[in-house]
Write a protein that binds this DNA or RNA. Structure first.
Length: 295
RNA sequence: GGGAAAGUCGCAUAGUGGCAAUUGCAACAGACUGUAAAUCUGUCCUCUUCGGAGUUCGGUGGUUCGAGUCCACCCUUUCCCA
């Protein structure tokens, strides 16, 4: 049976180097599960592995997609599946490494097939939201899909909008597409979670942000500034610089905010991963784990 | 030395007689099936059998049925004149 080793955990926990070491031991390659490192145009701010690191082990799904093209979990699942299956033809093990919980979940369990929605409908809903407000969308959803309405996070405009999008596109309730059946994947999973003590994680985050600044994050942000409205750039490390460029905050404040927002992001990641029951947690603050021990 | 302004729950801020006290941030906990580094929710003085109970607004006194709000003095900070 083929095995997919998943290395997950909050940002700055040390996933990259851990995954490289593991992949070298297993003589295999790494597939990224990172919703931002996928983009060509983002590098420093998304903490991509360095050139040296990328040369040690072959990485997939890093810097392969343009910020100008639509991207989502479904696309990711297809790409990741294809690469993983291909790698399994010659290898018994593959390493999946990243911090995007939903993406990892898509690789493990698959994601329901949904109708493809055209841009028109999304814009229409977006427009409704702006002109008539969330409550109007809620009413619409209640009418189109009472079942989902009853269980959904109605306050979350993203959830409500997406559900409506599917309803309007298909003419059917969103719920009927959400069977949430696990897809059969032809590999087994070793799910490893990397964590750190809070203080140490904060220290590592702060240090890494400072390093990003030294590496030229500001310049990278300058280059991306014209496209700041793109969803891909609604990203910690860039959006704060955009605020600075807009003269809303000082550079010092921007840097401080990047640290804070990264911390909060790490916390959300932990919330996500904590609910995953099959994770074998390794606290890197407490133990210096020998990779051979987990093989 | 003289004058002015200000001190509110981690920080910032609202509050000029009915207030456990506004709002933002941070923090903490959580949700998450196609925007996910996104988006959203709850808690946030203490205790609680969640009905409440007890202590709060620099300090000490006072006025008042009632004081963060009014008065007196004191302490601290900032600014202006020396």
């Amino acid at each position: 049976m083929k095995t997919l080793y998943i290395i997950a955990g909050p940002t700055a926990s040390g996933k990259t180097s851990f995954a490289i070491e593991l992949a070298q031991k297993l003589n295999t390659e790494i597939v990224s599960a990172d919703s931002r490192q996928i983009f060509q145009q983002m590098n420093i701010g998304v903490a991509r592995p360095t050139i040296e690191e990328l040369n040690k082990v072959k990485h997939h799904l890093i810097g392969v997609w343009s910020i100008f093209d639509k991207y989502n979990v479904s696309v990711y699942e297809n790409q990741a599946d294809e690469i993983i299956n291909q790698l399994f033809q010659n290898k018994d093990n593959v390493v999946l490494c990243g911090g995007s919980g939903l993406y990892i979940n898509a690789v493990i369990n698959g994601i329901d097939d949904m109708p493809v929605c055209d841009e028109q409908i999304r814009l229409q809903i977006q427009n409704l939201l702006e002109t008539k407000g969330l409550s109007h969308l809620q009413e619409l959803l209640k009418e189109k899909d009472p079942e989902y309405y009853a269980m959904a996070d109605i306050q979350n405009q993203r959830r409500v909008s997406r559900a409506l999008e599917v309803c309007l596109q298909s003419g059917k309730p969103y719920s009927i597409f959400r069977n949430q059946k696990k897809k059969e994947k032809n590999f087994r999973v070793r799910f490893i979670g990397l964590e750190r003590d809070r203080e140490e994680l904060i220290f590592r985050i702060n240090k890494r942000v400072d390093e990003m600044i030294d590496l030229g994050l500001e310049q990278e942000a300058v280059e991306l500034y014209p496209h700041k409205e793109l969803q891909a750039l609604n990203t910690v490390g860039y959006k704060e610089f955009f605020e600075y460029f807009d003269n809303k905050i000082s550079k010092q404040q921007a840097i401080e905010l990047i640290k804070i927002h990264t911390r909060q992001y790490a916390k959300r990641q932990m919330t996500w991963f904590r609910k995953e029951k099959d994770i074998e947690w390794i606290n890197l603050s407490k133990s210096t784990i020998n990779i051979d021990d987990i093989l």
